[in-house]
């Protein structure tokens, strides 16, 4: 049973990932970072991918963009974007696919701006390279783009170090949507930012999404943030998806013990103080089975005592 049939609403899937498997191949042994993962994202849908460091969520993002480098290797499965097979694209097709069809904002992307070029030069670069506009036209559009994320266009002449962290992050997001992609991948877009700025950036993304209608793949470990923003989400553990459902369902009724532990890691801001329990140190889930539907649209990997491992030391990697 795969989850690729689960699409939000009735609209068509923009992205379909089926049984994706990614391995990091070494000389003596190889590690499976992503193991038979399937999901789909509908038009205009915000899909969240939650999980801890090392669970494979960034590897998925990088494989969608075909950015994986040796020793990582996609060893199975398919990625289809708008009917096209992403894994079969030629370098020239890929060049157009990236940024025009799918754009990505990396973790601490604000530090990925070139420090010796002004913001304006970096944005006009996108238009001259990918869209073939003249310099003057590109500059006009770059100004509009900054206005879209509420940055004064005079900032086109600024260098990245003259902007605050939040402004830089917004500039990067503006650059990502410059060519009106149909899918935006956000890999921990606000991790390095303070909470007040984080909320403003997220509100901005929501607004842009409303205006431009793109789909979003949103990757984070902050469950509260994810539930607030996403329509539908999946929780990853050890390279596998352990639960996927509408975000509201996962918030009110998490089924898998790992999902429950993740939700429990974020104490509520209201109500009485109730003791919470996280995942005990050393507890591991092994051989996670395929997902099974527990209620309409809510899929959970079966779990039981036999799939739990409580060996404290054995297998601890970090």
């Amino acid at each position: 049973m795969t989850v690729s049939q689960v699409s939000f609403g009735t609209h068509e899937a923009v992205l379909e990932v089926k049984d994706l498997t990614v391995k990091y191949v070494g000389d003596t042994r190889s590690t499976t970072a992503v193991d038979r993962v399937s999901f789909s994202i509908g038009t205009g849908e915000i899909f969240g991918l939650a999980g801890e460091s090392g669970c494979g969520k960034s590897t998925i993002a990088n494989s969608l963009m075909r950015l994986l480098k040796h020793p990582a290797r996609i060893s199975g499965g398919s990625i289809r974007f708008g009917g096209k097979d992403v894994l079969a694209m030629s370098p020239e097709e890929l060049r157009r696919f990236r940024w025009q069809d799918v754009a990505m904002v990396f973790q601490s992307a604000m530090n990925s701006l070139n420090p010796v070029l002004t913001i304006g030069e970096q944005i006009t670069d996108i238009y001259t390279t990918h869209a073939g506009y003249s310099r003057k036209e590109s500059l006009r559009r770059a100004g509009e783009l900054l206005e879209l994320v509420r940055i004064n266009p005079v900032r086109l002449k600024s260098y990245p170090h003259q902007l605050s962290g939040g402004m830089r992050q917004r500039a990067v997001i503006a650059m990502a949507v410059a060519l009106k992609p149909s899918l935006l991948i956000l890999d921990e877009p606000t991790t390095a930012l303070d909470v007040v700025v984080q909320q403003e950036i997220m509100a901005q993304i929501k607004e842009l999404q409303h205006e431009l209608g793109f789909s979003v793949l949103f990757i984070t470990h902050d469950m509260s943030l994810m539930v607030e923003l996403s329509h539908r989400m999946a929780v990853m553990y050890g390279g596998r998806i352990v639960e996927t459902a509408k975000a509201a369902d996962i918030h009110t009724n998490p089924q898998h013990p790992y999902t429950q532990a993740l939700m429990g890691a974020f104490p509520p801001l209201t109500g009485p103080r109730v003791p919470l329990t996280g995942l005990p140190d050393g507890v591991k889930f092994r051989n996670i089975p395929d997902l099974a539907e527990v209620s309409p649209g809510h899929y959970v990997a079966p779990f039981g005592a036999e799939l739990l491992e409580t060996g404290a030391l054995e297998g601890a990697t970090r």
Binding site: P275, T277, D281
Partner: peptide, 11 residues
Amino acid sequence: LDVSVRIGILN
């Protein structure tokens, strides 16, 4: 720390 063990440290 990984989010799932944070609450354990607080406890």
